[in-house]
């Protein structure tokens, strides 16, 4: 093999673009690019429901059921029912989106569409693939939380300028579910585990973590369990921010809890992605 270097290139046209230096896109951002491409197809329906569902839930439960609560109990934790409910629903929605996006799409990218394997045949590595996907989920959560906050404002349930921080709080709540659930999804051979996760994880959290009523109404030990769940901390943080009832100690604790769970989830996901994708 003593071919002169100049003729070695497979397609003998390097083109001017290959010699011009430009800022390289980090590999994880290229993986994120895939999910953005995907979204081109579905964004209309997705944005529509992001607006519509908060409106439906807030009018049916917040206004409708709220009118009965106002009549009977007058206030919940000192505020109108809809003011109590709305930030709880915002956090619960973030949980649901974060969880969903880390279940079927992860499994699909491993098993059905094998998207991750397409990525791994290129310069991207396993960690790039994982960060790219999580970054995409974070972007989705940002949009959904911002829309939720806007709808809440229309319903008059935003009572403090700190409410803007409820957007990152919502993203954090969603990521505290997305990262560990992605770790779990990468270990699953079929989607049966997802139904179990829904039925014994996400649905009970939705019902008992302080979204619809204060956890203080739960029996002693059940209250402790509820307060240990990630959704409880997400709800409490979003609620403190939109109501403006801030209390540095607990609020920092809520945030720290959610960050810690996200980081732990990421570490676990890195391990389970490696095990599943590199064989």
């Amino acid at each position: 093999m003593t071919v002169p270097a100049a003729t070695r290139a497979p397609v003998p046209d390097p083109g001017p673009q290959r010699t011009r230096r430009r800022m390289a896109t980090p590999p994880w951002a290229r993986a994120l690019g895939y999910w953005l491409y995907q979204y081109k197809r579905t964004w209309r329906g997705s944005i529509t429901t992001s607006f519509l569902y908060p409106v439906l839930y807030l009018s049916a439960i917040g206004v409708g059921l709220g009118s009965l609560v106002n009549h009977h109990a007058h206030t919940v934790d000192g505020v109108k029912y809809i003011d109590f409910l709305a930030p709880g629903l915002m956090a619960a929605t973030a949980m649901q989106i974060g969880g969903n996006e880390a279940m079927y799409p992860v499994m699909g990218a491993i098993k059905w569409m094998r998207t991750y394997f397409a990525m791994l045949a290129t310069p991207l590595g396993v960690v790039d693939v994982l960060i790219g996907h999580l970054a995409w989920i974070a972007l989705r959560l940002t949009a959904v939380s911002a829309i939720y906050l806007a709808i809440m404002a229309l319903f008059g349930t935003v009572h403090s300028p700190f409410a803007l921080l409820a957007i990152p709080a919502g993203v954090l709540t969603g990521m505290a579910f997305a990262a560990p659930i992605a770790a779990f999804a990468a270990t699953q051979m079929n989607d049966a585990g997802f139904s179990a996760l829904y039925r014994f994880g996400l649905i009970p959290l939705f019902l008992f973590s302080g979204t619809f009523f204060p956890v203080t109404q739960l029996a002693g030990w059940l209250q402790i369990v509820a307060e240990a769940t990630p959704l409880y901390h997400g709800v409490a943080l979003c609620r403190a921010l939109t109501l403006g009832h801030l209390d540095a100690g607990p609020d920092v604790a809520h945030g720290t809890y959610l960050v810690a769970l996200t980081v732990l989830g990421f570490a676990l996901a890195r391990r389970s992605f490696r095990r599943r994708l590199v064989t």
Partner: peptide, 29 residues
């Protein structure tokens, strides 16, 4: 690969575009 890893729901062109992006090639290229 032995089994295709195409994105079935994207278009033919988009499959090429996104794959090229993994190599960080400029879109124009």
């Amino acid at each position: 690969p032995q089994e295709d890893t195409l994105d079935l729901e994207l278009t033919v062109l988009d499959n090429l575009m996104i794959y090229g992006r993994y190599f960080d090639l400029p879109r124009r290229v």
